[in-house]
């Protein structure tokens, strides 16, 4: 599904990701752990085709996204849903429109316009929002929501998009324990019952062990370890964070 070979990405001389090789197969449930600045977000942007690598090769669904014609690239990206760390929602729009933005890859221009005047597919959006405790916010403006609420809206948008891969960049960083569990359970269920490939970037190591099958540790742009959960001793993950703090 995803294949990275010797991928390097620099931002003004500084390598955010340096020579990474990585393969993720369909149906996997992967946790990506590592201290801040380890290159997790950059890796995600490489995986969803938003940025091209400086060196090496990125293959999504077996193709190089940056060689595809625009239309083909869009079709491919519709299969990859990203929950961004800073949500990246449109503040002035109501929640329903932000959620419905998940349909944009499929909707015709006319349909997209129509929905802005009179929201379409409200029922579907409401069902997902209700599942995450947001049923009373459907017609609220997005910038009136709290951080935790926006984070869940961003997740609902991806659920509505219904991609075959979900990339979640710290999806529970703003949530209370109750909602964190709700979201993590949901992601696991999407993987187990719907066969969606799920890659989650996490700071909470406990969830990495309890909810994922495979853990990839990142440190300063390199892969520190990559194995099945059962093969990884807890201390290895703890070291990842500790080393960074000393260095």
């Amino acid at each position: 599904m995803f294949e990275l070979r010797g991928v390097t990405k620099r931002f003004s001389e500084l390598a955010a990701v340096g020579g990474i090789g990585l393969a993720i197969r369909a149906g996997e449930r992967v946790a990506l752990v590592g201290p801040s600045g380890a290159g997790k977000t950059t890796l995600f942007n490489l995986l969803n085709g938003s940025i091209p690598p400086d060196e090496g090769e990125v293959r999504l669904f077996g193709c190089d996204p940056h060689r595809l014609p625009a239309r083909e690239l869009r079709r491919l990206q519709q299969q990859i849903g990203t929950v961004h760390q800073q949500f990246h929602l449109v503040g002035n729009l109501r929640v329903i429109h932000n959620v419905n933005a998940g349909h944009l890859g499929r909707w015709s221009l006319f349909r997209a316009l129509h929905s802005l005047v009179r929201p379409l597919e409200v029922d579907r959006a409401v069902r997902w929002l209700r599942g995450l405790g947001l049923e009373d916010k459907v017609f609220e403006r997005n910038d009136r929501l709290s951080g935790g609420e926006q984070q869940r809206v961003a997740l609902v948008r991806v659920l509505v998009q219904d991609p075959s891969v979900i990339l979640a960049d710290e999806p529970i960083s703003n949530l209370d324990p109750e909602h964190s569990r709700l979201v993590m359970d949901l992601l696991r269920e999407l993987n187990e019952r719907r066969g969606k490939t799920v890659v989650i970037c996490l700071h909470d190591v406990n969830y990495a062990f309890s909810h994922c099958e495979r853990i990839i540790g990142l440190r300063s742009g390199h892969i520190a370890f990559d194995d099945r959960v059962s093969e990884i001793p807890r201390s290895l993950v703890d070291d990842l964070y500790r080393l960074e703090r000393c260095g």
């Binding site: 869009r74 079709r75 990206q77 849903g81 990246h88 449109v90 933005a101 944009l104």
Partner: peptide, 23 residues
């Protein structure tokens, strides 16, 4: 950033304009 996020999920330019730029 919200615009590139829309782009990354495969929305066409006109749709990004409607849901991201215009509002």
């Amino acid at each position: 950033r919200p615009l590139t996020a829309l782009r990354a999920q495969g929305a066409a330019g006109s749709h990004v304009f409607l849901y991201g730029v215009l509002p």
